[in-house]
Computed example of a mutant assay.
Amino acid sequence: MVLTGWPFMFLLSMTGLMCAAGTYLSWMRWPGRWALPGRVASLLLVMAFGGVLALAQVNRSYGFYTSVSDLAGRPPSTHSLALQAQIHTGADVAVLTPHWVTLGRRDGLRGHGIMLNVLYPGTRSGLTHHGLLYLPAAYFTGNTERRFAAVEVFHGYPGSPETFPRLMDIQTRLETEIDAGRVPPVVLVIPQVYAGGQSSECVNAVHGEQWETYLSADVLDDVTRTFRVDASRSWATLGISTGGFCAVNLALHHPERYAAAASLSGYFTAGEDPGTPSLYQGRFASRENSPLWWVRYRAPVATPLYLSASGGDPEAMQEARAMTATLRRYAPSLPTTTVLASSGGHNWGVWSAAFGPAIDWIAQYLPGPLVAPPAELT
């Protein structure tokens, strides 16, 4: 059962209500010597369920843990298990959604795209993970030779790709921007960005898993090979919280692949998530993966950055201000937009509201659907 869904909340509420009713009905029925311990135990049980319900509501609001396996420190879904890739070179994305082409054409005629469950294989990194992929309505209607730009979207820690449709309704929000003409029809690529109980920060760990290679090379190449997604510099990144760190760090490292990057409530110094210092095993790897250090000592001229934070999230606000100041001083030619909201916190309500402006900003750096040139005759 999904820990952020209404069925789980309803089950907890009903269980708590039954405990309260049981305590009330049994209060005067406890026999002699069992009266005091029985009443105390009943009260403690009611209070415990109240605490669990409160924590569940906080978890639902923030999307910290979406499944029991995620809570237990295992991959967030049965599809997310990290596998040592035994896949031939040139492997395609495996679509797990049955009859997706038929469903896509049907929804496309209604003006809607389709969100697919997929497996992203990793031929270079040796990783294969579950994820989501959104194809816009235009993918299934009109010219079937058109190729599309893509936005790679990164979730936070803890989290999973499924949090975007569940807690943000990302497809509806994107299609609102597409229908309004503020964003061209784009593909959303939403991969898993860590496995197990420790954040990967989307980096190539020293003597560990190669997440940067997986996300910036394997996923991009596999998607462009499987779908009509443009292979040129027509990709962008967008992430929330830890995913915001991933979005900026990967885009700065690979300006030849990413045309823009947006961070919503992200941070910009490596090793800030619990347990992540072990990924680097030394100052060199840590600083190379810190966007603040990268900007100061590499003075990049690409990729354009969009930084967003809110007043109710002091850590993200401080990070955004520090990154903006560093960019202005050491990389003044790098296009940067910083949006600081006066209120809000570190939650899905803030990220949902910030998504529209962020994707609109990204759109100026992405081409519209392109028609592939005809194949050369040999």
Rank of each mutant, 00 (worst) to 15 (best):
residue 82 A to N: 10
residue 121 P to N: 11
residue 71 L to T: 06
residue 89 T to D: 11
residue 250 L to M: 15
residue 70 D to G: 10
residue 119 L to A: 08
residue 360 D to K: 12
residue 116 L to G: 08
residue 284 F to R: 14
residue 14 M to D: 03
residue 221 D to L: 11
residue 279 L to C: 03
residue 116 L to R: 05
residue 19 C to F: 03
residue 172 T to H: 12
residue 185 P to A: 15
residue 269 T to N: 10
residue 44 L to V: 15
residue 8 F to S: 06
residue 47 M to Y: 08
residue 272 E to W: 08
residue 364 Q to P: 06
residue 378 T to M: 08
residue 153 V to L: 15
residue 276 T to S: 14
residue 110 R to I: 02
residue 270 A to E: 03
residue 279 L to V: 04
residue 202 C to A: 13
residue 95 V to F: 03
residue 10 F to M: 10
residue 214 Y to V: 11
residue 161 P to V: 03
residue 370 L to W: 04
residue 16 G to K: 05
residue 129 H to V: 06
residue 234 S to G: 04
residue 129 H to E: 09
residue 169 D to W: 09
residue 369 P to E: 10
residue 363 A to P: 11
residue 332 P to S: 08
residue 155 H to M: 13
residue 137 A to Y: 02
residue 67 S to H: 01
residue 32 G to W: 12
residue 302 A to G: 06
residue 12 L to Y: 04
residue 189 V to H: 06
residue 171 Q to Y: 00
residue 29 R to S: 11
residue 293 W to L: 00
residue 366 L to F: 10
residue 99 H to R: 14
residue 300 P to C: 12
residue 300 P to K: 01
residue 347 N to L: 07
residue 22 G to M: 05
residue 200 S to Y: 05
residue 170 I to P: 02
residue 112 H to N: 11
residue 320 A to H: 01
residue 213 T to I: 13
residue 155 H to S: 13
residue 52 V to K: 00
residue 283 R to N: 12
residue 160 S to R: 13
residue 235 W to Q: 03
residue 41 A to P: 03
residue 70 D to Y: 02
residue 287 R to S: 09
residue 160 S to T: 15
residue 4 T to E: 01
residue 25 L to S: 07
residue 136 P to M: 11
residue 17 L to R: 00
residue 12 L to I: 15
residue 328 R to W: 07
residue 145 E to D: 10
residue 11 L to Q: 09
residue 111 G to S: 12
residue 280 Y to Q: 01
residue 93 V to A: 13
residue 316 A to P: 01
residue 231 A to N: 14
residue 72 A to I: 05
residue 161 P to I: 06
residue 56 A to D: 07
residue 166 R to D: 14
residue 245 F to R: 03
residue 101 V to S: 05
residue 334 L to T: 13
residue 252 L to K: 00
